[in-house]
Design a protein around this nucleic acid. Structure first.
Length: 666
DNA sequence: TTAGGGTTAG
């Protein structure tokens, strides 16, 4: 029995098997035709510059050449291994286009399209719609649009397919324009159109437009449909309108696993991970069995919470469902395994992440990236770099996220040379212009002290976002170029970017390095006043540090006392550090006492205070005795005067310093 | 004889 062609298999293999004679010829000839054929399919698709794709004159040429090349060798009906010809039915052609779309096999899709054009079947809207869908599924949205524009007759299917093509390729605005235009053209949207419109709103987080579409859905009576309800829950979740998502979910007449999964995702992606996990349990209580996608969402919530116990529970449920080790159902199970690796990595259980990874039935670049991230984020940066090499020896090409993770590992190791090597590979792959990659590079160069390289990368970035601006400001601030950092802060705003909490940390660091106390106060106050940002502990620590270093201890202490922060242990500790510099014993004792009260396990305040006393030549220290631990031998909580002897380090245990004092007391 | 809902990596 002949082995059937599977479009998901390696393109080059498929190409050789399908068109052996052409491949042989391509090795000999040097004509354009041969050159096209000699290309690996995926390369050919990428080689058509995006601008040319809309230019049908040029594009037709390529297609015609491709078609001509195959005229003698026949495009093949992959299911029957029969050449395509005039007798091939429309149903077969549609089925081939569908499979090309599912497998994202753009090159083969183009071949089928060429066949359709060759026999002038492009007058047929049914086939034309399938071609539009194929291009949309393959991510070639400009081709989809061109084919749509040349359709002889546009029907409801055509509009719905085009809208989905736009919505699924990150062009929500264009999808919504189609939604308007179809109605202007007198075509009444059906529930599929509404779902596509909601999807478009989700992709660009257009809440108001989504609400408008919701109102139209209610007017037309589609709101009781299960799929429409699910799309609404998803839209409100993606638009961060959790209350609306809940309302729609609660009012749904029917629910299925997808409704529950959409609600779990809405909760988890809007910072309500605990509740998302409650919903996951409730869903099972209501008799719905989680599927691989539900498990992915639940694992994601565990990862965000770093809740290892719940993550392990869910892993056990996956094993019980018989899902572990399965590789069928497209990418469903694969993604679930990736989510397990990710969850264990985020929960700090590298050993479990390794175990899942080693048992995975198959791995994609996402699986490798998840494992590399797990290593890198758990302090095993060298292992992350080894895995990166192993991945490439296994023939998996890194993508932009892999590069970001690997650059982070280099940053942690301060491995500038390795980072530069990876930078060269990034340039070779054409990823340098990607904003996330550029940002990771700026971070690397900034942290490794190579500010000039950071500036170069930043200067070359075609697109920047807040994160890349933050990285560049931080690079300047931490390399002693405080003024440049503050200038960048101004440029960033004139470029239309709103600073966030991270920006202000770097700005305050820049003020600290340049000793600009008044400017620091101004920036700190402007967080709340001009940018509606509530300063976090880190910002307060930064400002106290600046005031403390400048000797403005009164101001620093007053600021701490006026802070509405829940936990002030770190800020008191910061003031304590400043008291040490300025030898302020009384204030130091006060600060230490606050810090110890708030975080009795931390030895740092004891050590700092003892240093202050030693420097002041005092013979005792006054410390707050936190607990009746065995080490304290019955000391009641309260304040004790401890005789001072010169400090010697007595180990690293959390009670080390405490033990030291009490040892001298008794 | 087509189209539609839920998922991961910074």
């Amino acid at each position: 029995m002949p082995k059937l062609f599977n479009p998901t298999m390696e393109c080059s293999t498929a190409s050789c098997r399908l068109f052996p004679r052409v491949s042989a010829r391509s090795r000999r000839g040097s004509s354009l035709k041969s050159a096209i054929i000699a290309q690996k399919p995926s390369t050919l698709a990428e080689d058509l510059p995006s601008k040319k794709r809309t230019n049908w004159g040029k594009y037709d040429n390529s297609l015609e050449q491709a078609a001509a090349a195959w005229r003698n060798h026949k495009t093949v009906n992959w299911e029957l291994e029969k050449p395509l010809d005039r007798t091939t039915s429309f149903a077969t052609l549609a089925s081939l286009l569908k499979r090309c779309g599912q497998a994202k096999a753009l090159y083969h899709g183009r071949l089928v399209h060429a066949h359709i054009r060759r026999y002038r079947y492009d007058w047929n809207t049914f086939l034309g719609n399938w071609v539009v869908k194929m291009y949309g599924d393959c991510g070639s949205i400009e081709d989809a649009r061109s084919v749509f524009d040349n359709l002889p007759k546009i029907n409801l299917y055509s509009w719905n397919i085009l809208m989905n093509a736009y919505a699924q390729n990150g062009c929500g605005r264009e999808a919504l324009e189609c939604f308007q235009r179809m109605q202007c053209d007198g075509i009444r949207p059906d529930q599929v159109s509404f779902v596509a419109a909601l999807d478009a709103c989700s992709s660009i987080a257009a809440l108001e437009k989504g609400q408008e579409v919701h109102a139209a859905i209610v007017r037309r009576g589609y709101d009781r449909q299960l799929i429409v309800g699910n799309a609404l829950v998803n839209m409100y979740g993606k638009c961060a309108s959790l209350g609306d998502a809940r309302n729609v979910f609660n009012q749904m007449v029917n629910r299925d696993v997808i409704s529950w999964t959409a609600m779990i995702t809405a909760l988890s992606q809007n910072g309500h991970c605990d509740e998302a996990l409650d919903f996951f349990d409730q869903m099972q209580g209501a008799g719905f069995k989680p599927n691989p996608i539900t498990f992915v969402c639940a694992l994601d919530a565990c990862a965000s919470l770093a809740d290892l116990k719940k993550g392990q529970e869910i892993h056990a449920a996956i094993v019980e469902a018989g899902y572990e080790g399965r590789a069928d159902m497209g990418n469903g199970f694969l993604n679930m395994h990736n989510a397990l690796v990710n969850m264990y990595g985020k929960c700090g259980s590298l050993e479990d992440a390794r175990r899942v990874f080693s048992r995975m039935p198959s791995r994609t670049v996402a699986s490798w990236t998840a494992m590399i991230t797990a290593c890198s984020q758990n302090g095993h940066s060298k292992e992350a770099l080894c895995l990166f090499n192993r991945m490439q020896s296994d023939g998996i090409k890194p993508d932009q996220i892999t590069f970001v993770t690997v650059l982070d590992a280099c940053t942690s190791l301060a491995a500038l040379e390795k980072g530069q090597e990876i930078h060269a590979a990034i340039v070779e792959c054409g990823y340098e212009e990607q904003v996330v990659v550029g940002t990771a590079l700026i971070n690397l160069y900034g942290k490794c002290g190579s500010l000039e390289d950071a500036r170069n990368v930043f200067g070359r970035m075609p697109v920047r976002d807040v994160v890349s601006w933050n990285a560049m400001i931080a690079a300047c601030a931490h390399n002693g170029h405080g003024m440049e950092a503050l200038d960048l802060f101004d440029y960033m705003q004139s470029d239309g970017f709103k600073p966030n909490h991270v920006t202000f940390l770097s700005v305050l660091a820049a003020c600290s390095h340049t000793g600009r106390v008044d400017a620091a106060r101004r920036y700190f106050n402007s967080m709340r006043e001009d940018h509606s940002l509530i300063p976090k502990v880190e910002h307060n620590v930064c400002l106290i540090d600046i005031l403390g270093r400048a000797g403005l201890l009164d101001d620093a202490e007053n600021l701490i006392n006026s802070m509405p922060l829940e936990s002030k242990a770190r800020v008191w500790l910061c003031l304590l550090g400043a008291c040490r510099i300025y030898g302020d014993v009384e204030r130091g004792a006060r600060a230490a006492s606050h810090a110890i009260k708030l975080d009795p396990e931390n030895a740092a305040p004891y050590v700092l205070l003892s240093n202050i006393y030693a420097a002041a030549g005092r013979s005792f220290v006054e410390v707050y005795t936190p607990t009746q631990s065995s080490r304290c031998r019955g000391t009641a909580p309260g304040t004790a005067q401890v005789p001072w002897v010169p400090y010697r380090c007595r180990g690293t245990g959390t009670h080390g310093a405490c033990f030291f004092f009490f040892e001298n007391l008794f």
